[in-house]
Simulated assay, not measured.
Amino acid sequence: MKIEKIKTYYLALELNEDKSRIKFLQTKRVAFDGFNDQNIISCLQKDSIELASYRTDTTFNHDVIGTNNTELINSNVQMTHLAMLKINSSFFSNQKIKISYTLIRAHYCKGVIADRDLEIIGGRPEVILIIDELSIDNNYRVLPSDELEILKAIDFNTFMF
């Protein structure tokens, strides 16, 4: 998603193996890079993930792959347009939110952000960490019957504040 071409936010909706949508849709924040190796271990062990704070012994060996993934996603100009939302409120004057999508295949871990870090970051506590190289399938198209359900599943609070 892009807000006024200034900020880009990445949210994920999981799909079944046959590319059909999962029954209960809920978006989760996606991290391609910027998280440390201990975050991956915590995620795999189902411990809470501390995304906003680091210890002195923190290592970022994963970040080379993560940076490559971020560059690949950012250079993907073929994302499919889903919707354009215009928001007028006392907080956001004439904001335009462009929602686009693409299918990504990658090994990932679903985790929960630690309470202390969630207070700093905000939004829902669920996060998806992409833990290896990903591939993009720009040929995937959302069924028209699923478009409204996908828009309803987006947690706009994740990036509005």
Rank of each mutant, 00 (worst) to 15 (best):
S42A: 11
I121W: 04
T27G: 07
F35G: 01
N74V: 13
L15E: 11
T59P: 02
T59V: 10
G122E: 05
E71W: 10
S48C: 14
I40F: 06
D47H: 09
H107W: 03
I113A: 01
N88I: 14
E17D: 14
S93N: 15
T80H: 08
S48T: 15
Y54S: 04
E119R: 03
F32C: 04
G34H: 12
S48L: 12
I113H: 01
I87C: 03
H81M: 10
F32A: 02
K46S: 05
C43Q: 01
I73C: 06
V77S: 08
Q78V: 05
S20C: 05
I97L: 02
D115M: 02
L51E: 00
M84D: 15
E71N: 12
T67D: 12
L118M: 00
I104M: 03
T70C: 10
F60W: 15
I73F: 15
Q38D: 08
R55P: 15
Q95I: 06
L51G: 00
L11V: 12
A114F: 00
R55Y: 09
G34K: 08
G34W: 04
L11T: 04
C43E: 00
T56E: 11
T58N: 12
G123T: 01
S100G: 10
L85I: 13
M79R: 04
Q95K: 04
Q95G: 05
K110Q: 14
L25I: 12
L103Y: 10
D33G: 07
G66T: 11
A12C: 09
V30S: 07
L11S: 02
M84G: 07
V64R: 13
D47K: 08
R105P: 01
N39D: 10
Y108H: 15
T58W: 13
N68A: 12
I120E: 03
S90N: 14
G122M: 04
T58Y: 07
E14S: 07
M84S: 15
R116E: 11
I99V: 05
L25T: 13
I65R: 03
R29L: 01
Y10Q: 07
F24H: 13
E17A: 11
K110I: 09
N74Q: 14
F32M: 06
L118P: 00
M84I: 12
Q26P: 03
D33I: 03
H107Q: 14
K96W: 08
D115Y: 00
Q45L: 13
K19L: 13
L118Q: 01
K28E: 08
T58R: 15
V77R: 15
L82N: 06
E126S: 05
N69L: 07
Y101R: 01
A83D: 14
G122W: 04
Q26T: 04
I87G: 01
D115T: 00
H62T: 04
A83G: 09
Q26I: 12
E14M: 04
M84V: 15
M79C: 10
K46G: 07
N88K: 15
F24A: 09
N39A: 08
A12G: 11
T102K: 09
D115N: 04
S100F: 05
P125M: 08
